[in-house]
Write a protein that binds this DNA or RNA. Sequence first.
DNA 1: TGTAATCGATAAATCGATTTTTCGTTCTTG
DNA 2: CAAGAACGAAAAATCGATTTATCGATTACA
Lengths: 358, 358
Amino acid sequence: MAQHQTRQRRPSIHDVASHAGVSAATVSKVLAGVTTVKPENAQRVFDAVEHLGYRVDPLASDMRRAKRRIIGAIMPEFESEFFGSMVTELEGLAEQRGYTLVAASSRESEAREKEILARMHDWRVAGVVLAPVRNEHGPAAAFMKAHGMTGVLIDRVLSDDAFDTVSADSFAASAEVARMLIGNGHSHILVIGLAEQAATVRARLEGFRSQALALNPSVRIDVITSEVSVEPLRSSLREYFARGERPTAVYSLLLKGTLVALSEFRRRGWHCPNDISLVGFDDAEWMQVTWPAIAAVVQPVHRIASEAMNLLFRRVEGDVGPPTARLEPCQVLMRESVGSPGDGPHSGGGDRQQPPLS
Amino acid sequence: MAQHQTRQRRPSIHDVASHAGVSAATVSKVLAGVTTVKPENAQRVFDAVEHLGYRVDPLASDMRRAKRRIIGAIMPEFESEFFGSMVTELEGLAEQRGYTLVAASSRESEAREKEILARMHDWRVAGVVLAPVRNEHGPAAAFMKAHGMTGVLIDRVLSDDAFDTVSADSFAASAEVARMLIGNGHSHILVIGLAEQAATVRARLEGFRSQALALNPSVRIDVITSEVSVEPLRSSLREYFARGERPTAVYSLLLKGTLVALSEFRRRGWHCPNDISLVGFDDAEWMQVTWPAIAAVVQPVHRIASEAMNLLFRRVEGDVGPPTARLEPCQVLMRESVGSPGDGPHSGGGDRQQPPLS
DNA sequence: TGTAATCGATAAATCGATTTTTCGTTCTTG
DNA sequence: CAAGAACGAAAAATCGATTTATCGATTACA
């Protein structure tokens, strides 16, 4: 059978051509929808394509094109819900536009980030959605600039003079957190974070600090950050509590910090919100099913993704206007982990709250 | 400047050739490490490459090759820690071997799964790591078989007659959960899950049921599953409790079910383990920082990933032996959410346990 | 009726590499 | 010293498409 042959070697456009009794050029034109082909021949081409199971070889087809219908996405990591959802959203949006999304993670390495970018450039991607490891001033963005790549920067960025940027409005969200904590009467607050992610984390810290001080000039704000990984943060926090510091609330600037805080509370037998209040930047599904539910800042993943894609495709289609810097609003969910300082700080065993049944 | 020109058009191998005063063939050979080139010419080629910032165009280079140094990874979703970690591991392992990993998610759709696979086939990937939406008998595996692709199936699979498979030993892990729950005196246990993911979930259920019945033939095991999404599961569970069913323990066959269970417990004001015990398949970082910490089955993500890659590369390198079916052992972490039925079921307010300080 | 315009399709050039073939030189060796 | 082996490099074929140039056969028009 003819089918048996095709199992061995992938049919090329010439196989289709000879099977249909026309030339390769004609086949190409038929498949491209050119109308200057005799309907009879077109039909024979379609039949041959069907019969041989022919598919255009993208390698050969794209070789003559400057850009392929591929969008690259580079995330700092894939293990968090935030970037996982982000990739999922981006994939869907690319698919809607007839593009393929190719995802890769830089695994928090700027060197790898640049390498991946170079590879994507080699692949002639139409555009790139880059969530940089650090900020918009890293080597990756410089590479994109130097090679005239089209792209958009998201998440750990504020604004750039060459690329559109989209991120959560960390500053405003943190200010709202400050408003809520100060409003609840907290006057000694610990802020924890990882400083390496400069752009975003700094905005989160400043947004919080400025608003808190504006509302209560005498508020005490302690800050613990770790430059690289999460473990130094954990030990700093442990030491902080061990030397007797007793803030009434903790604001974690990122998800990993929230987990560290919870685990340290646990070690000391502290419960939220009676012993200490907790708010974390970045929401997660589990935070609403624990007891207490954890207050969190929800990042608008969907809006960031769709805005990023809108801006990116505008560029892909040739727009050369000045870059935009978008800040998408967050939602602050004040859940049970936040209370007022008077409710029994560090007593070690207040009553649990009973949510209404049904 | 010459550099200014290269900013416009990407330098080709011919640019390098003319700049070095040799032919394109010689450039290609030098870069491929062929030793039959006069050292003097080789040096001139290297200089030209350096000067022009030349990089081999993978599209052109790979066109003549049957396979590219690319591994495709297709996961059902990216939003859970499990698959996020899986992709991260796979990416690292591919990189170690000098391959690039291209990740995509089928977003729980078998149709999309097959499309992605076809695209990867078009891209001439060297191999594919497929975590199928349902099981090893879906259209995607059939496609791979029909087109002679090399690949390995992971996670929601048991064994296959054409491909190597690697998954967690759900059966054994569930049996151990049964042993622990029965050992703690539970005699009425509810198992919840989503049945669509046939292969794994069925193994989890059967492993649990067989072991539980073996240890206590009179144990009562209720099962609630939902075919498609998580919401029907939630309402079934709600209705189950509403009509007065009071199992002393719940075993969730997947992470989403664990969240649903916790959220239903919360609605009713039940606390683990005093009111009801809970074990979930799939661990997550937050499960050890909540109060109580949630007992869970830890899947050996790292081992699954590295075994999958080992098997895959064996095939890529030409091994044609019969397919292997690997089951990697899980770890069962019995944390605080599991207790004994006598400790005050459904009393609605047992004392919290205090873990040791420091 | 002879030439021009039109139509449909094919041949050939192109994309940017790799690999095989060919072709001068130089070096052996009888 | 001439024939053959060895060497190094260039020319040409190849991968599989797309696109431009070309060409023959009709059809239109003067």
